[in-house]
Amino acid sequence: MKLWRTPFDQAEKAIRPAKVLIDKERCKGCGYCVEFCPRGALVMSDELSSKGYTLAAVADESKCLGCGLCDILCPEFAIHVVSNDNES
């Protein structure tokens, strides 16, 4: 998108790389994060947890905008979205 001027809050609103951490011990595979991720960054994997649940996994981290919806929607408190600034 071409902007006619640089928005004053561009730095604040800029997309930051984010890292989605999924705790495999907590995930019960409900699929809420996968279904409602606005960017399709997550996927149900083939991997089973130690309790036999199908685990959610990150499909494409570059798609993630760090909105955190998966984090707050997760019934298991199993997903944490952290800023990836330091690593980039």
Binding site: R26, C30, Y53, I72, C74, P75, E76, F77
Partner: peptide
């Protein structure tokens, strides 16, 4: 953790909202 609620139970997100 992990808690006793079933897969897909809606109580977890509500507890999350409360803590936030």
């Amino acid at each position: 953790m992990p808690h006793i609620w079933c897969q897909g139970c809606g109580i977890g997100p509500a507890v999350g909202c409360f803590t936030r």
